[in-house]
Structures are given as C-alpha cells and as structure tokens.
C-alpha cells in the first residue's frame, strides 16, 4: 500500500474516531463507529490480510444493520421524524468523502499488479476496477433514487414534510 493511500484512509479513520468519542449524539457515535470499522477494513486489506478485512467489513455491516433496526428506526417512528433530506455542510462533506474513497478504491484496484491467471480465471484487474466503480456508482444512484421516492410520499408514517 502506498503511503499516500494509507495516510488518506488513516486521517479519515482518525477524524471519524475523534468525532465518535466526542459527539453528544449517541446514534451519530454509533454510525461514526461503523465508518471507522469500514475504513480500518480498507487499511487491513492494504496490509495484506484480505480475509481479516472482509471479516471486519462483515462486523461493520452487522453493526450498522443492528443499529438501524434496533435504535434508529424505532426512534424515528416514535418521534415522527421528518424524512426530508437537507443539504447541509456535513452532508456535503460526507458526499465528498464517499466520492474520494470511491476514486481511491478504483485507482488502487487498477494500480494493483495483475496476478498470474489461474485455470478457470477469466477476470483481470481492469475488469475488477470497472466492476467496483460500477457497483459503487450503482449503489449511490440507488440510494439517491430511494431518497427521492421517499421524499415524494408525504403520507407515509414518519415521512411527513
């Protein structure tokens, strides 16, 4: 792993860690903790432990799912929280961070040396980089479409404008 890539991820992880332990909102602390786990999984992957990184990612995904199901969703339903999406500075920063990580991921996969193809392998590093970019772009587009669809249904419980 190149030092510039390592320190880019490390700074994001350290900022998220500091924000998680200093924020006054518990739900935000949990979500920032999930971000820390995800970024650290990227670091562990770069250090040559892909199996361990995937396991950490699984733990982060499970924690996010549990947090949303047990804490965030019931609280939103109980409080009747509005579903409006406001473009404030933190949301813009988060979008910028996601775009930066996406570019870094695609670049890292594209710059990685190609391994010797084994019998039965038909996928190369170039295809992997394009596939990763397409998957992340598709996920972002799907999240955006779902957000717009939820915003246009004001009669849904807890989604009133």
């Amino acid at each position: 792993m190149q030092p510039i890539l390592f320190w880019s991820l490390a700074v994001i992880s350290l900022l998220a860690s500091a924000s998680a332990v200093t924020t006054g909102r518990p739900v935000r602390a949990l979500l920032l903790g999930v971000i820390v786990l995800g970024v650290d999984a990227g670091l562990i992957f770069g250090l040559g432990a892909p199996l361990l990184a995937s396991e950490v990612l699984l733990v982060g995904a499970a924690a996010a799912l549990l947090t949303w199901t047990l804490v965030v969703r019931p609280r939103r339903l109980r409080l009747g929280a509005p579903g409006r999406v406001r473009m404030n500075i933190s949301r813009l920063l988060a979008l910028g961070a996601v775009a930066y990580l996406t570019v870094l991921l695609v670049w890292a996969i594209a710059a990685s040396p190609d391994v010797e193809p084994q019998p039965g392998d038909h996928l190369g590093g170039e295809f992997g980089s394009w596939a990763a970019g397409a998957l992340l772009g598709g996920a972002a587009a799907a999240a955006w479409v779902v957000t717009l669809a939820r915003r246009r249904r004001p009669d849904e419980p807890g989604e009133a404008p």
């Binding site: 998680a20 739900v27 602390a29 949990l30 250090l47």
Partner: peptide, 20 residues
C-alpha cells in the same frame, strides 16, 4: 453507553491494525 461501546470498538480496531 453508546459512546463507551464505540470507544471500545475503536480501540480494538486499532489493535487489529497493529497486529497486521
């Protein structure tokens, strides 16, 4: 409580990176 749990996760994640 939530922040305490997240702090523990952050610590263990750092230990994991140090192990690697």
């Amino acid at each position: 409580g939530e922040v305490a749990v997240v702090s523990g996760l952050v610590m263990l994640s750092g230990v994991l990176v140090a192990f690697c």
